[in-house]
Design a protein around this nucleic acid. Structure first.
Lengths: 342, 342
DNA sequence: GTTACTTTCGAAAACGTTTTCGATTAAGAA
DNA sequence: TTCTTAATCGAAAACGTTTTCGAAAGTAAC
């Protein structure tokens, strides 16, 4: 089973490789007759252009790279799906890498993608990433770059995010609206911007409603593989520290589910004793009981938006047009379920 | 920011491109001194070989393709993770495509991967796939192909699977062991082999234990996006049809969770009234209440095994050695939780 | 018979590597 | 000196495309 090349077609038809190539690409300077001949033979021989040769010649790969911290994750797998769905429409392939929340790995993977000559890179930063030289290298090479979710504000590239502060504000406001007076917060790690913003949204909602902000009500949770366990642990600790809490805004659904499990084991009724709001709207949150009130983080839409933005930038670069980085902010919404009393 | 090539290095050092290439690849016929010079300059110029050129020349892409029916799925995202983790170790990149359970799309995607000249393909078939010409084309082109989970027995390629029949047998036996007398089964769609095998395992366990097999206790569930809803619907139907069922073996955890939700809403106690065993061990199953007894389907390990098998085949092909397709069967285990009485 | 123009084609260069094979030089042996 | 051997290098071809540019042939007009 030899693989068919332009040369093979040319030889069989006794014409030149040039003409074959042009015929297949519908150049105006080849006659109808030969065009037909070429196309027919190409089909019967099942000719497929060698992507390497095309890429080498045209200097584009029709391939993009995607780096995410974790793959087994409801939000991120939705993002993947969104990106792939858009990429397919535009004829792009997606190479996926997982940084495992490690800066070192992330850096290596960026280098790898660059040497693969992908047409662009979409990335959500690892929690461990605090230096951005690898990203600046991408920008220096004039390769389109789009960050989403876990972003670095200082890097000059397009970004797709949600308004974390506003979303957290909405979540907290909801707890206040249903009558909660002492509202705790399980926040994410200290570093990622969105965990900071969510905390700030929580704080602002309290202050705007004349509820004193009490730092002892804020618990930190690394939000890694052990999220569920951490949620349980924090819930137990919270109950030991304070007996007057009646609402919690918890960063990430999984932590919230852990907390709910712990509360149920300790005989605390949800939402009667404590109302809980999560963050992300993992599928799981809709099927547990009580179902979890949460903020919907639109992963699929973010993926789509990220690719669309990247594609715009790729096209602009090809035409040597100047390109202004843009930050796309997607809407979130509060999904009220059974874990908050109404 | 020009991209550095071998030529650039050669010109700066006043040597030939050949020597530069050899120096970087540690050929024996270039002196220590020039090797050092070349490597140093390559590093300072941040030289990265152009993957297209390398691929074109060496006829391998160090890239494999992966086609799966769905991405947002606990099992499949674990498989992705397993494949990527192994691929990374061997220096391979992974292009991921989603067939959306459509034969047409799957076929197109196989063609796409072939024209991309990937070094091999890993695939889990769409439910809609009943013709295998596209897969045979891969085999005809002597491209390594590995199928996992949703396989077609008739296609002559390596496969990575679990023993679905045995796993289902174990699950059903567990229900019998804890005293269930009337055991229902929510099965998957009619076509995929593993849904058939699971059904057969269920049936055999009944017969081996002298429990009459009653077809009216078997409900079909398409196992698509609506799994949860289907689980609820089937549970309601089951309760209407039969009032003596005390155990159900349910294909796929999500359907089981739907069923459990419906039962709870209808006042049926789990596991007191009905014991339930799921299939797949989605993460979710460990955090709901009652937690779900289920069969662990080792997605991560399957992904690893699939890549390992593919890699063996790629290596064998490179050495023009004959290669015998092999079927790897991975172990599953029963995870007993709260949804089955003890 | 010259000029001008259209239509159709192909030679050749280029993309950036890898690898074969021969050339050159230096050194050592006779 | 001449011959052998080892060490080091580079020319050139090849991988399969795309695209530029010019050539050839035919047609039409004068």
């Amino acid at each position: 089973m030899k693989i068919v090349t332009l040369k093979d077609i040319a030889e069989q038809l006794n014409i030149s490789v040039t003409t074959v190539s042009k015929a297949l690409k519908d150049y105006p300077d080849v006659s109808k007759k030969t065009k037909l001949q070429v196309r027919e033979l190409a089909k019967t021989l099942n000719y497929k252009p060698n992507a390497f040769a095309v890429n080498l010649r045209t200097r584009e790969s029709k391939t993009i790279g995607l780096i995410i911290p974790v793959i087994v994750h409801h939000f991120f797998s939705n993002v993947i799906k969104g990106i792939i769905s858009q990429a397919e429409k535009k004829g792009y392939l997606v190479i996926i890498l997982q940084s495992d929340e490690s800066y070192e790995l992330e850096k290596k993977q960026v280098e790898l993608l660059l040497s693969q000559r992908v047409d662009g890179i979409i990335i959500s930063l690892a929690n461990g990433t605090a230096k951005y030289d690898h990203l600046n290298e991408v920008i220096n090479q004039e390769k389109p770059l789009v960050m989403f979710d876990k972003i670095a504000k200082v890097v000059k590239c397009s970004k797709v995010i949600i308004d974390d502060r506003k979303a957290a504000y909405t979540a907290t406001q909801h707890l206040i609206d249903i009558g909660c007076k002492r509202i705790a917060h399980f926040r994410g790690a200290l570093l990622p911007q969105n965990s900071i913003d969510r905390f700030l949204g929580y704080k602002k909602a309290l202050i705007d409603n004349n509820i004193p902000y009490d730092p002892s009500l804020v618990y930190i949770c690394e939000c890694g593989d052990m999220s569920f366990e951490e949620g349980k642990k924090n819930a137990e600790q919270l109950l030991a520290d304070h007996d007057d809490v009646d609402g919690i805004f918890i960063n990430t659904d999984l932590v919230a589910i852990g907390a709910m499990t712990a509360f149920q084991e300790m005989g605390v009724k949800i939402p009667t004793d404590i109302s809980i709001v999560g963050f992300s709207n993992w599928f799981m949150s809709s099927v547990i009981s009580p179902s979890l009130t949460t903020i919907n983080q639109p992963g699929f839409e973010m993926g789509k938006a990220a690719f669309k933005q990247l594609f715009k930038e790729i096209k602009a670069r090809k035409k040597e047009k100047p390109f202004e980085p843009k930050t796309v902010v997607l809407e979130t919404d509060l999904i009220v379920r059974a874990s908050t009393k109404s």
